[in-house]
């Protein structure tokens, strides 16, 4: 269900904190059944990716805020993974209702989908728990968006694709968190998606070729 103003206002950070604190670190039974319904079961690659990205995230976090806060980094990531599994399940449930299909093999074996969804979940946790705990360390590195994109080596345009579905799928987001994701969205649309290595340019080219119209839009280099 789309986010209604009342629901967003009613939700408090405590709600999401309580939900994440009691959530499991592993995929739920429901989520496992979605994995089992896939032509190619994605579970192993999902678990492997969560582990690999976790190592990188904790390393970069400790580098950014100091080894003394390394434990905070692993806590943030842990909660991010819980949110990632929770939102994935909710997304699949609504897609199942919308499309009345049960086999999401292609989507669930898509590395970019998972990396984007995980990045969004970790970004929400980072924004939720804020920076006050490690604010005192003059780390110089700003961990707010788009820091997570560099850590996960993720293109902004791919991150952008999950934002709206994430907001729809996670009913416990607060107004501030939705506003935060919306600011990320705008920053991507206004600048980050137009950087020269963005996948956007290939997509524009492909759609132009499909339309068969003259390709006047693309400049050789993005300005």
């Amino acid at each position: 269900p789309p986010q209604t103003p009342v629901r967003a206002v009613m939700n408090t950070i405590q709600q999401l904190v309580m939900i994440l604190n009691s959530a499991s670190d592993q995929p739920s039974e429901n989520l496992n059944s979605y994995f089992n319904n896939c032509t190619v079961n994605p579970k192993e690659s999902i678990l492997k990716r969560v582990e690999n990205i976790g190592r990188i995230f904790k390393e970069k976090f400790a580098e950014a805020v100091g080894q003394g806060c390394a434990e905070i980094g692993s806590q943030r990531y842990k909660l991010g993974v819980r949110l990632y599994y929770r939102v994935m399940e909710s997304m699949l449930k609504s897609e199942e209702e919308r499309l009345s299909i049960h086999n999401f093999s292609k989507l669930l074996n898509d590395k970019i989908f998972h990396t984007s969804l995980l990045a969004c979940a970790v970004e929400v946790v980072m924004a939720t728990y804020g920076r006050n705990t490690y604010q005192s360390h003059d780390s110089g590195t700003d961990l707010s968006f788009p820091w997570i994109l560099n850590v996960l080596d993720l293109k902004a345009f791919d991150f952008y694709k999950v934002i709206e579905s994430f907001i729809k799928a996670e009913a416990s987001l607060t107004r501030e968190m939705i506003k935060h994701l919306e600011r990320c969205e705008h920053r991507i649309m206004e600048s980050l998606a137009w950087q020269s290595d963005s996948p956007l340019f290939d997509l524009i080219k492909q759609s132009k070729e499909r339309e068969g119209s003259v390709d006047h839009l693309l400049e050789p280099t993005s300005t």
């Binding site: 986010q3 919308r98 499309l99 579905s165 994701l181």
Partner: peptide, 21 residues
């Protein structure tokens, strides 16, 4: 400020966005 603007149309969802339809 006003609420989040849901831009996805009918028949557009995460599956379409990741070319899995």
């Amino acid at each position: 400020g006003q609420d989040y603007h849901f831009g996805l149309e009918e028949g557009e969802g995460i599956r379409e966005l990741f070319d899995c339809d």
